Computed example of a mutant assay.
Amino acid sequence: MKIRESFASRLFDICNMLLMIVLMIVMVYPMVYVFSASISNNALVASGDVLLWPKDITPVAYEQLIYNPDLWISYWNTIRYTVVHVVLTLLVTSAMAYPLSKKWLPGRRPILLLAAFTLLFSGGMIPTFLIVQKLGMLNTIWAIVLPTLISTWYLFIMRTFFEALPEELEDAATIDGCGSFQVLLRIVLPLSMPVMATIGLFSAVNQWNAFFDALIYLNDRSLYPLQIMLRNILIAGTNVQGEGDLTHLETLKYAMIIIATLPILCVYPFIQKYFVQGTMIGGIKG
């Protein structure tokens, strides 16, 4: 028997649909505008004539960026910083979250309280800089990767996920002769792909967009990530060729934004199913 929907239910569905359409337009419009501005005439962009669709299409901004060697150096730096950071973050966070998910672990509660303390308080920028300096990590990849290696929020999400896994699987693996490290690698991590993909995506996006650490820890231009180059164009008004020619500065800004965000936009659809599942499961228990 077909259930007849009430007027209030239909009205709610219509309002919900309209709200989703408005939100979609709000999110899609900036992306369309940035792309249109990046391939439009610089004078039209600067004068505000480009509102949605491109006008007087020209690829000159992309040509200037593509033939600039600094772009590819910064691209490579950003890629290796992101890959190393994500891999180490997943390894170290899982290695710490797995034992903390066991209630029989001695000192588990004090360790969790100390970890939660870092959510509210931190050592500060200057002490962190001094530590990085004393360890000799300035102008190295480790100055970018190590200070933000472990996020307490990610640690708690992964710990909660591990607690929800059936203990019978681990007991069976232990009976078969697996140690704790083998159980983590062979049983727990393969079953934790949703939360691993979620934390990996968050870490990758944060590291890809990070520029402040590079700004204070790196002095060598050959080590600058992509976001420093983007910052120089967007904020400092620096021409990518360093010759003070600002003829195509407006279109360069938008072209650089497209180039900097395109990889993340391309990666997200492939791990979206893990992302949604991992976010939901990670919030089951506190």
Rank of each mutant, 00 (worst) to 15 (best):
Tyr154Ile: 04
Tyr29Met: 12
Leu11Met: 04
Asp13Glu: 10
Cys178Arg: 01
Pro69Glu: 09
Ser222Phe: 11
Val50Phe: 03
Phe12His: 00
Met17His: 14
Met17Trp: 14
Trp104Val: 00
Asn209Lys: 12
Thr174Pro: 00
Ile228Arg: 02
Asn16His: 03
Met256Leu: 10
Trp72Glu: 09
Phe275Trp: 06
Val45Trp: 13
Asp56Phe: 03
Val84Phe: 10
Leu100His: 08
Arg10Ser: 04
Thr251Asp: 00
Pro69Gln: 11
Phe270Ser: 09
Glu168Val: 14
Arg221Glu: 13
Leu155Tyr: 01
Thr58Tyr: 08
Trp76Ile: 10
Val26Ala: 15
Ile3Val: 15
Cys266Thr: 15
Val145Glu: 01
Arg108Asp: 03
Tyr224Gln: 05
Leu185Tyr: 14
Ile39Cys: 08
Cys266Gly: 07
Ile175Lys: 02
Ile21His: 02
His85Val: 06
Ala210Val: 05
Asp13Met: 08
Asp49Leu: 12
Ile271Glu: 05
Thr251Trp: 03
Leu265Ile: 12
Asn209Ile: 02
Leu155Thr: 05
Thr261Phe: 13
Val87Cys: 13
Val32Met: 11
Ala143Ile: 00
Phe117Cys: 02
Asn16Gly: 07
Ala61Ile: 09
Phe121Pro: 09
Cys266Val: 15
Leu52Gly: 01
Ile284Thr: 13
Ile25Leu: 15
Phe117Leu: 12
Tyr274Glu: 09
Ile216Arg: 13
Met20Cys: 12
Lys2Asn: 11
Leu19Cys: 10
Ile25Phe: 15
Thr160Ser: 15
Glu167Gln: 13
Ile257Gly: 01
Asp70Met: 09
Pro147Ala: 02
Ile157Ala: 07
Gly237Leu: 14
Gly177Ser: 04
Phe275Tyr: 14
Val86Leu: 08
Ala61Gln: 04
